[in-house]
């Protein structure tokens, strides 16, 4: 009898423990999400509500015009296009450079392949702070400040080490037989790279592309330093200046912040597993 009671008791305790754990997880989810939800709320409110005591609740009038204001007079539309151009160029160019060089390092036979790989991987530890001023001076001397190139070139360069790290690891796992038989059939190295390797490494390239997207889309330090022409500004810099201009206009700023976040959230909703993977994979190296 006593034994059974004890067992029931234990099970009850366990259940309570489980509820506590779940409550904790829910509370934490709220801590992580509520600020973002609040951002959305004030992006659709007008000033009377924000400054008149309804800062917490749902808007009484949904002020969607904040979005059109942010896009047109706040210039967020322009910044969005600039960010998109810079990000797409960075992803395309860095993917090509990473794919070709990782292939040559892993598959082709040459004396310095290991050394070159080591040098590339060292780049993973270089903080961008250390390159900021020299790059600024180089770009200034080349008259490249305030151009897309002033961002695309550094972004590509800094995407290369991580990309090569991920892709070389992936290439080692691909069997060589396909290429070998292609070579025997008289296929050139370029054709074999393009028709055999490229399709096979697409999953790894996707991981790299997501990683590059996040670091490029969100980058602040370079963009803030190399660009001050409003027509070229990317979202991060643009929003900084927007909030300086519109200090008392929370609605349009909130709308700008939401617009800047939409692509990232969309990618995350569609590919959450891959996004998580792409950010974890680089850490294994430490």
């Amino acid at each position: 009898m006593k034994n059974i009671a004890n067992k029931n008791n234990k099970r009850g305790m366990k259940k309570i423990g489980l509820y506590l754990l779940e409550a904790m997880l829910v509370i934490w989810a709220i801590i992580q999400l509520y600020p973002l939800f609040w951002l959305f709320l004030f992006s659709v409110k007008n000033n009377t509500e924000i400054f008149g005591g309804n800062i917490l609740g749902f808007p009484r009038i949904w002020q969607w015009s904040n979005y059109s204001e942010a896009l047109s007079s706040g210039n967020v539309g322009r910044y969005f296009i600039n960010s998109s151009i810079v990000t797409v160029l960075t992803i395309v160019i860095s993917s090509i450079l990473v794919a070709t060089s990782a292939y040559a390092i892993v598959r082709m036979k040459w004396k310095y392949s290991k050394l070159v790989l080591t040098i590339f991987l060292m780049g993973m530890m270089v903080p961008i702070h250390a390159t900021l001023l020299p790059l600024f001076i180089i770009l200034k001397n080349l008259n490249l400040l305030n151009t897309y190139a002033s961002l695309v070139i550094p972004y590509v360069a800094f995407a290369i080490p991580m990309g090569i790290f991920i892709l070389t690891g992936f290439l080692y796992t691909i069997p060589r037989e396909l290429e070998e038989s292609a070579f025997l059939d008289g296929c050139s190295i370029y054709k074999s790279f393009y028709y055999i390797i490229l399709p096979l490494i697409r999953p790894a390239l996707a991981t790299i592309a997501i990683f590059t997207y996040l670091s490029t889309w969100n980058e602040l330090m370079f963009a803030n330093t190399f660009i001050n022409n409003d027509a070229i500004k990317t979202l991060t810099v643009g929003i900084m200046s927007l909030s300086g201009q519109y200090q008392t206009e929370w609605g349009p700023i909130g709308a700008g912040l939401v617009i800047a976040t939409i692509p990232t959230i969309l990618i995350y909703v569609l590919l959450s597993e891959q996004v998580q993977k792409s950010l974890v994979v680089g850490a294994v190296k430490g």
């Binding site: 450079l97 990473v98 070709t100 060089s101 292939y103 040559a104 390092i105 082709m108 070159v116 040098i119 590339f120 060292m122 780049g123 270089v126 390159t131 790059l135 180089i138 070139i153 550094p154 590509v156 360069a157 800094f158 290369i160 080490p161 090569i164 790279f193």
Partner: peptide
């Protein structure tokens, strides 16, 4: 052709 472009960009911009 495969390695030099990436290496050059990396060397000049990062290292």
């Amino acid at each position: 052709l495969f390695v030099f472009p990436a290496f050059l960009v990396f060397l000049v911009i990062v290292l």
